[in-house]
Design a protein around this nucleic acid. Structure first.
Lengths: 333, 333
DNA sequence: TTGTAGGCGTTATCAG
DNA sequence: CTGATAACGCCTACAA
C-alpha cells in the first residue's frame, strides 16, 4: 500500500506538506504543491480513509437513508448527492429502509459518531427520538423532503404544488375533482395525504364543495392507483378530473381508466406527481420535483453544517413545475 | 470516550488482555475474563470501529458500484445486499456510474485497500485494467450479472432466458419473430445485444430464417423501445411477436403498438425482460430475474472471498423464470 | 513555507 | 496465561 510517506519521499518533501496538499491547505507554495500532486498521481496514492478518521477526526463519509419506496428515483437522488460531492473526498454510506423496524434500526445505528460525519435523511420524516439523538451526538444532518425547524432541510411546497395541479384542472373547466392521494410519511399510513391540503385549498378558492367520496389515499403503486380509479368511476357521479399523489399511482389509474373505455383526457383528466421516465413517455401531465437539484443542495447544506456546526439550521424550499402533457383537457360536454 | 486502556485500568489488567477478551481469544483465564467483562459493562465500553480497522485491518465496508440505468431495480439489489449483511457489521459504500468517465473514475478509486474490504460490481462488465488492479491489490470482488473466470460472480443465463422467451412464442405458432435488444454492457453501445444469441439459437432450432430487419438494439428506455416498434410495424412484413431486452423498452413498445391500433396480443405478441412493478401491473409477459436473491448471494460470496482470499473464484448461475401474463398469444391467422 | 514529532485506539508480537 | 510495546497512516501543533 502506498502511504503518505511514500509520496513525501517521492516528492522530496515532508509528510506534513503532503498532508497539507491533500487537505487543500493554502499554506503550500505553488511549486511544491505541483510536485506533490505529480507524485500522488504517479504513485496512485489515495489517503487511507481509516487513518484519516482515526483519532476522532473526520470519517469523510455521509450516511444517506432512503426509504425503499424511493426506488423510482433513488438513483436520481444519489446522482444529485454525488454531484455535490464530486470534488470533495466524501463518499456515501447508503442504507435503504424497508419497514418501520428497519427504519428504526437505521435511525439507531446511524447516529453514532465515528460512523459518518453527517446524515442525510431522504423522503422520511424523522422521529422525535432520532432528532434528539442526532442533537445529543452533535451529528450534522439534513432532511430531504421533510421539515423540522431544528434541522437543516431541503423541501418542496407540496401544498402549493397540489393546489397548482388542481387549479389547472379547475381552469380547464372541471368542477368534479377527485384526489388519489398518498401518505406523506411512507412509514405511517395515517393522517392527511401529501396533497390533501393543497387540494382542499384549491377547491375552496374555486367555491367547490368537497366530497368525501372523492378523496382516496393509497400506497404509491400502480395497482392501488388502479383500484382507486375503479372506485371513483363506479360512483353515481364520477369525477371528471383526478389529481394523483404519485406517478406510479397515476400510471395505474391511467391504464385502468382506458381499460374501462374511458378516454383520457376526453372523458376524464389525470394529473400525476413527481415525474419519471415512464410517465413522461406515456404523456402524463404531472408535477415535476427537481430531485437531483434538491439532493445536490441538501448535500451542500450538509457540508456547510459540517464546516460550521454552530450555524442556524435553515430549510431551503424548491419550486415545483407543472409539466403539461396529454392527460388533461376540458371536462366532457 | 472510553477506551481499551480505561477498561484495562479499571479491571487491573493490561490492554492486551482486554483485547483478547473482546476478540474471544481462548488464551484468557475464566477469572480474568470475568473481571474484564464486568469492567466493560460498568464503563459501557465499545471498541472503536475505526481504530479496529486501523493498520490495514478490516474496514467493515463493502463498495457497491451500480450503473445509473439500474434505477428501476437499484433498491432491489441494495435490499438483497443488506439482507446478506444484516447480522454482520458491514456497511455499504454506494457509488453510481453515469458515463464511461464516471465508471472509470469509480473503477480507479474503488480498488484501493483501506477504502473497503471488497467490491461488488453490479450490471457492468469490468474492464481489463480494473480486473488487474483488483488482483494487484488483492481486493476481493464479486460480479453481479457479469462473468469473468478470474472473479467471483453471480449471473443469469441470458442466452437460455432469451431462448426460452423466443421458444415460448414459437410454441404459440409464431414464425415471424423480432427482437428489440439492449446492449449487454451499458457503457459500450456495441457488439451483439444481451438476447441476441438466445434469439438466434431458438430460431435455428425452429428452422426459422433470421432476418436482419427484425433485429434492433436500443437503449433500455421506453421511447427507444417505441421507436423500434414503429420501425418493425412499418415493415412490409411486420413480425407477429417481439422479444424485448428490457421491460422499459417493452413498456414503450407495448404502448406504441396499441397507439397504432395493434391489439396486443391479438395482432402482435410482446415479451419483456426483467420484470418490474409497472410491467407486472400492465400484464406484460416477461422474464423475471431474481434480483434480490442474486444480490444477496453475491454479497455472501464476497464475504466468503473476504474470509478465504485464496479460495478459487466461482460463478453462481441463477435460474430465470418466464412470467406468463397477457401480452402473448397465437399469431393472427 | 516547510519538516518533525506526538498521539489517536486497537491488534499482534514477543518476552516473561 | 499475561503485560508491555511496536506498528498502523494521518493530522496538527510547533519549531525552524
Amino acid at each position: 500500500m502506498v502511504t503518505i510517506s511514500d509520496v513525501a519521499r517521492a516528492a522530496g518533501v515532508g509528510i506534513g506538506t503532503v498532508s497539507r496538499v491533500i487537505n487543500r491547505s493554502p499554506l503550500v507554495s505553488q511549486a511544491t504543491r505541483q510536485r506533490v500532486q505529480q507524485a500522488i498521481e504517479r504513485l496512485g496514492y489515495q489517503p487511507s480513509p481509516i487513518a484519516r478518521a482515526f483519532g476522532g477526526r473526520r470519517t469523510h463519509k455521509l450516511e444517506v437513508l432512503v426509504p425503499r419506496f424511493a426506488a423510482p428515483f433513488c438513483l436520481e437522488l444519489l446522482r444529485g448527492i454525488e454531484d455535490a460531492l464530486i470534488d470533495t473526498d466524501y463518499a456515501v454510506l447508503l442504507r435503504s429502509m424497508d419497514s418501520v423496524s428497519d427504519r428504526d434500526r437505521a435511525f439507531e445505528t446511524c447516529c453514532h459518531r465515528g460512523r459518518a460525519d453527517g446524515v442525510l435523511l431522504a423522503w422520511t420524516p424523522p422521529t422525535e427520538v432520532f432528532v434528539q439523538r442526532l442533537q445529543a451526538e452533535e451529528l450534522p444532518s439534513v432532511l430531504l423532503n421533510a421539515v423540522d425547524r431544528r434541522m437543516w432541510g431541503v423541501a418542496v411546497d407540496h401544498d402549493a404544488a397540489a393546489r397548482r395541479a388542481v387549479e389547472y384542472c379547475v381552469g380547464l373547466g372541471h368542477r368534479r375533482l377527485a384526489v388519489i392521494d398518498r401518505f406523506a410519511d411512507p412509514f405511517a399510513a395515517a393522517g392527511p395525504g401529501l396533497c390533501q391540503r393543497g387540494y382542499s385549498e384549491a377547491l375552496a378558492a374555486a367555491s367547490i364543495q368537497e366530497r368525501p367520496e372523492y378523496e382516496l389515499t393509497t400506497e404509491p403503486d400502480p395497482a392501488p392507483g388502479a383500484a382507486a380509479v375503479d372506485a371513483l368511476l363506479d360512483l353515481r357521479e364520477p369525477p371528471t378530473a383526478i389529481v394523483v399523489g404519485s406517478d406510479l399511482q397515476a400510471i395505474g389509474a391511467l391504464h385502468r381508466a382506458r381499460m374501462r373505455d374511458r378516454r383520457v383526457p376526453e372523458d376524464v383528466s389525470i394529473v400525476g406527481y413527481n415525474e419519471n421516465s415512464i410517465s413522461a413517455f406515456l404523456g402524463l401531465t404531472t408535477v415535476r420535483l427537481p430531485l437531483r437539484e434538491m439532493a445536490s443542495r441538501a448535500t451542500e447544506l450538509l457540508l456547510v453544517a459540517l464546516a460550521e456546526p454552530s450555524a442556524r439550521p435553515e430549510t431551503v424550499v424548491f419550486p415545483t413545475e407543472l409539466v403539461v402533457r396529454a392527460t388533461c383537457g376540458p371536462p366532457p360536454r
